[in-house]
Nucleic acid binder design. Sequence first.
DNA 1: AGATCCGACCAATCTCGAATTGGTTGAGAC
DNA 2: GTCTCAACCAATTCGAGATTGGTCGGATCT
Lengths: 233, 233
Amino acid sequence: MQMYSEAGSNRGIVTQLRAYLAQTELPEDGRLPPERDLAVALGVTRTELRKALGTLEAEGQIWRHVGKGTFLGNRPTDSLSDIAALAKRTNPAELMRARLIIEPEIARAAALTATPMHLAELRLCQTRTREAATWRQYENWDTRLHRTIAEATQNTPLLGLFDMLNSLRRAVTWGRLRSNPVKPEPDHHSFIEHEAIIAAIENRDMNGAAGAMRIHLQSVERNLLARQSNSAL
Amino acid sequence: MQMYSEAGSNRGIVTQLRAYLAQTELPEDGRLPPERDLAVALGVTRTELRKALGTLEAEGQIWRHVGKGTFLGNRPTDSLSDIAALAKRTNPAELMRARLIIEPEIARAAALTATPMHLAELRLCQTRTREAATWRQYENWDTRLHRTIAEATQNTPLLGLFDMLNSLRRAVTWGRLRSNPVKPEPDHHSFIEHEAIIAAIENRDMNGAAGAMRIHLQSVERNLLARQSNSAL
DNA sequence: AGATCCGACCAATCTCGAATTGGTTGAGAC
DNA sequence: GTCTCAACCAATTCGAGATTGGTCGGATCT
């Protein structure tokens, strides 16, 4: 707990610092010189300078970080898509909720913008998942199917969001082994559900695509929960 | 263009390599030894080994990258949320489409899960945007308002997606100056629209929140397009 | 001849220690 | 007491050297 005198030379140094910032050409990233150099340049003590910088920081004019430096403007959002950091603070259930919110809307958009090329790719993926000899192969084609839907939106940011969700999924699920070593059953629920999604996209049925995707993800969610509760075996 | 003989010793080395991969304990990340070491370990030439690795890569069993190494499994998706790279391949219009797809759904989820704390924060942001003396301040509180809505979903992955969209927005819009130096008008369209969003969330009206957010973003979009077409002035 | 082996080189990437930077503490000057 | 100064701390960045997959040309073997 520190009382500011606010009447001493502090005020003067703050204005001096403001003047410096106003007249000095800063580099691209808005970084200003290190405290040690800046103190010499302004002819003040580092202690004094730091007090002034503290004032400016409290005002939100600048932000500082150890090892990085002092910067002009607003601190960039910290949690910017660091997959690993994000994965530690979440869990499969929460991730599933996010997927249930996002992916149906992606499917809806895809129904509007998918090209014949995308439709052909979807059909290929569907065939390959049915033919898959191992779970590994199945998951590869399943992943590709879902990503093709995201590509079909022809929207780069949306595709980026989808990839982020996917990376998260891998990071969160990471280390878990699939309990069932055999290949997927021919009547695996995903086949029918995938078919519904693809059909809706082919028919330009936006609501249908979103609904089918939601049903599919809910089915996957149920499967996930069941597998978790069985893991005690 | 290279013709594979496919009948020579190549086949044998591929199987030898498969056996090695099957029986060897690989590190966590699925990385296998450098080609030079592996060639010695298997008692074959690097040229031969590389031919076999090429076959496995064509089959999708492994993937390689200069400086990194050779890895088992599928190559991780390249476009994994690299904001800067993503920003170069998109544009404000496309980004706006993505926001129109995602953010209403976030608002919908927020209406279900927002706590009194979140509601208070939203009210604070709304007040501050009205009081803002400069566009800079206005944008700070506007950004915080939208982020609070994302926080209100209490879903970490969803918040991560929102932050990614936000980072993208800053990166894409980067360098553009606001043409109007004065503070926002008291009847700025955002005030009413924000009010509608917050009210819907307070009333737990999920459809209302999603709709209000959609209307708001469409309004922002119109404003953006108008400003772009005026930029010739 | 033709394929193969071998060494060398290249560019992308990783590694890891040294330098830089904001934050903190304690002794000493005023 | 208050301020100054130097030293130290931990987070971060920087940079030279080592690694690694990819490529080329001459030597070697069949």
